[in-house]
């Protein structure tokens, strides 16, 4: 599998300025030394809790925000050092879908205006009629009738608006898409429709997708591989099934055990998360997760665990190889289909 996009020691630090002179007194390390490869054609899930830096990392990869240091390699060439102008050809290849379908569409623009805007920018050679055709076609692609092209965002439900948001990303035929919590604001039944749409377009368009979410069940459904982030760092990255059946990082174990499932008898069997989330202004020394880890030892205070290979394609940033962690599900060759009736 070839690498489409790669983060190399990527850092995004936000300065905190205080006092009369506005001197920098500290920095929030939103992304702190991330190394990550996304293969062409795969869906990489990026999970983490609020403040973990997962959205910032997604924005860095898109060059919506220039990283403080480190490189973003797109097919091997670095984007981070490029001028605004030199980034232009890459903008078309990388598109983004946002969480809130209500605030990410301009209420005063028709669907046609919203969808053709990226084309005016990226394919100025197209005529108005061609743009209109492309918009109608893309709208159909995401499961909405062509005729809706003249409507305004308020005429659509949340799920439909999210489809429009996806269409706006697809219309320039990108190679890489970052979807930042694209189903979190939607009702469950609508969420399923939009997830199915993502599965369908990544197959049919060969799209490479970074799917950022806090929802483990969603990521388990959509992703080929999953990366788990905590306090700006990647704790674990693995093929999806391996992450859920044989987690190698205590943080993953805790996250998995906290995910509520609509099954009977799962109640209460939790691996508790100790204490309070640390302030991103002063992350713990050593392993950043150690203050909340139920497996932490004194060695963890000083260790700076790097991502190490623990199984084929399975990397974890934990020094404790000796512990066995509780999986979310036991690995059976075939999972019995859930039954809905007795």
């Amino acid at each position: 599998m070839s690498t489409l996009i790669e983060a190399v020691d990527l850092k995004q630090h936000y300065p905190v300025r205080q006092g009369l002179l506005g001197r920098q007194t500290a920095a929030v390390k939103a992304v702190d030394g991330v190394n990550l490869r996304i293969h062409r054609g795969e869906v990489l899930g990026l999970v983490g809790e609020s403040g973990s830096g997962k959205s910032t990392l997604g924005r860095n990869l898109m060059m919506m925000e220039r990283p403080t240091s480190g490189a973003v390699l797109y097919e091997g060439s670095d984007l981070a050092g490029r001028s605004h102008k030199a980034l232009h050809p890459y903008r078309r290849k990388m598109q983004m879908v946002f969480q809130d379908p209500f605030s990410s569409l301009n209420p005063r623009m028709t669907v046609e205006d919203s969808l053709t805007m990226p084309l005016r920018f990226h394919q100025p050679e197209l005529s108005a009629a061609q743009r209109r055709d492309a918009a109608a076609e893309t709208l159909e692609r995401v499961g909405l009738p062509r005729s809706m092209i003249t409507r305004y965002p308020h005429e659509f439900s949340g799920g439909q608006r999210q489809r429009i948001g996806i269409a706006r990303g697809l219309i320039v035929r990108p190679e890489f898409m970052v979807a930042d919590e694209p189903v979190s604001a939607l009702d469950v039944s609508v969420q399923a429709q939009v997830l199915n749409l993502f599965s369908e377009i990544r197959e049919s368009l060969g799209l490479t997708l970074l799917f950022v979410t806090h929802d483990l069940a969603v990521v388990g459904h959509i992703a080929d591989r999953v990366a788990v982030m905590y306090l700006g760092q990647i704790m674990e990255i693995a093929p999806t099934r391996a992450l859920f059946t044989a987690p190698k990082h205590p943080y993953t174990e805790t996250l998995l055990s906290a995910a509520p499932q609509p099954t009977v008898g799962a109640r209460g069997a939790r691996i508790p998360m100790k204490g309070e989330p640390p302030s991103p202004l002063s992350p713990p020394s050593g392993c950043v997760f150690r203050t909340r880890c139920s497996h932490a030892t004194p060695e963890c205070d000083a260790a700076h665990p790097e991502l190490r290979s623990r199984a084929p394609g399975h990397l974890s940033a934990c020094i404790r190889d000796d512990i066995s962690l509780v999986p979310a599900v036991s690995d059976r060759p075939t999972s019995p289909r859930r039954k809905q009736s007795a």
Binding site: V188, S189, Q191, A192, L195, L216, A217, V218, V219, G220, H221, A223, D224, P239, T240, R241, A242, L243, F244, L256, A259, Q261, P262, T263, A328, V329, S335, R338
Partner: peptide, 9 residues
């Protein structure tokens, strides 16, 4: 319509 952890991956 709810994705299940047991089906992950």
């Amino acid at each position: 319509s709810v994705p299940r952890l047991e089906d992950a991956g």
